[in-house]
Structure formats: structure tokens, C-alpha cells
């Protein structure tokens, strides 16, 4: 990034990129992407630098929103890939103070139980027909009914019915696997 400037137009541009970068950082945190091994501050800085370079490279170019979105997406994907590589690398020391387990406080019983539940959940989902499974899994992944409708190509009402019936079916199958109690 360039040093602070007295040029009002340049200063305005720097302010725009600072504000946008700060917004990106807040959204990364609120969407839980900071839990996936990436540093929101690094991503913010990288987004600002990439946009700045693009503007400097071609001052006559019109920057569409989709181009800016691609810059953000590319930066986040790069950060996620770097985090994956770091996670795959061997740990430095066995007696390191840093805990390698993300949920070490949960205890072995809880972890074993979750692992068993996950396997049962995967089995139950696999037994549901694809047409119903996709809306359920999108719902469990946190997508709204409208987003599910757009993704699957149905109306919002149809998405709501698919999700509702699918979740009932999933719970029914989980009960059959011994996971019988569901709080609504």
C-alpha cells in the first residue's frame, strides 16, 4: 500500500479500500471462516492490496461488483488452501504447548460419542433419496429456505416442504439408529 497522501482523491480511494477491507474482515468473522485456519486481518490486507494493484494497473478499467467479488473469493480461497496445507504439515514437537486438537476440552467420551453420531448421521442421510437429501443437507449447512430454493431450482414454498418432510424423515431414521430424543 502506498504511504499516506495529501491528494484528496487518492486519500478518498484509500479510505474506500480501508472501509471495504474492514467490512470483509467482519463478515469473515461473522460467517465463521476465521474458525477454518485463516486470519481475517491477513485476508483484509490482501484484498486491499489486490484491489489497489488492479486499480493502479488499469486506471481506465471499469470495476464491476462481480470483479470485486472475485478478488475477495480468490483471496479467501487462497487463504483456505494455505490453511489446509498448514494443517496437513507434521506438528513441530510432541511436547509443544499448543494443542493440536480443536475440541480437546470436550473429553474422550464426548468425542467418541460425536464420532459415533456423525457416522450414524452419514448413514441415515445416505438412505434418504437424493431429491430430499439435497435440501436437507443445504439446510443443515445453514442455507436459508430462499437460498435452498435458488440452489435447487424450486420455489421457496417447495423448498420449505422438502426441508420439513426431509428433516422429519431424517429424525425418524436417527431414532431407529438409537438417537431417539429430539428437542424442537
Amino acid at each position: 500500500m502506498p504511504p499516506p497522501t495529501s491528494d484528496p482523491i487518492q486519500a478518498r480511494l484509500e479510505q474506500l479500500l480501508r472501509d471495504y477491507g474492514a467490512r470483509v474482515r467482519r463478515l469473515l468473522q461473522s460467517h465463521g471462516l476465521d474458525q477454518r485456519g485463516i486470519d481475517p486481518a491477513d485476508v483484509e490486507q490482501e484484498v486491499r492490496i489486490r484491489l489497489w494493484r488492479a486499480i493502479e494497473r488499469d486506471r481506465s478499467a471499469a470495476f464491476h461488483a462481480s470483479y470485486i467479488q472475485r478478488v475477495v473469493a480468490t483471496t479467501v480461497v487462497d487463504a483456505l488452501r494455505r490453511a489446509e496445507v498448514r494443517a496437513a504439515e507434521p506438528l513441530p514437537d510432541e511436547d509443544s504447548e499448543a494443542s493440536p486438537l480443536p475440541d480437546a476440552a470436550a473429553g474422550p467420551d464426548r468425542q467418541a460419542s460425536d464420532s459415533e453420531r456423525m457416522d450414524d448421521l452419514a448413514r441415515c442421510l445416505d438412505s434418504i433419496p437424493e431429491r430430499r437429501r439435497l435440501p436437507i443437507t443445504l439446510h443443515l449447512q445453514g442455507f436459508s429456505l430462499q437460498e435452498i430454493a435458488d440452489s435447487v431450482g424450486v420455489s421457496a414454498e417447495a423448498a420449505r416442504k422438502l426441508v420439513s418432510r426431509g428433516m422429519d424423515e431424517l429424525k425418524s431414521r436417527l431414532r431407529e439408529c438409537g438417537h431417539g430424543e429430539f428437542d424442537e
Binding site: R12, Y20, A73
Partner: peptide
């Protein structure tokens, strides 16, 4: 992670549009 990113981009779309407009004014 891809689901989170897509949802984040969906929320960010208005901000990106506003930035594009401001950059056009800057240009």
C-alpha cells in the same frame, strides 16, 4: 468452508456494488 464463503459473498454483494460505483466515480 465453501458454503460459508458463498453465504459471505452473498452478504458482501451490496458492499461490492457500492465500492464499484465509488471506484467509477474515482476513475
Amino acid at each position: 468452508s465453501e458454503a460459508d464463503l458463498v453465504r459471505m459473498l452473498a452478504v458482501l454483494e451490496d458492499d461490492s456494488q457500492a465500492l464499484a460505483t465509488d471506484l467509477a466515480r474515482y476513475d
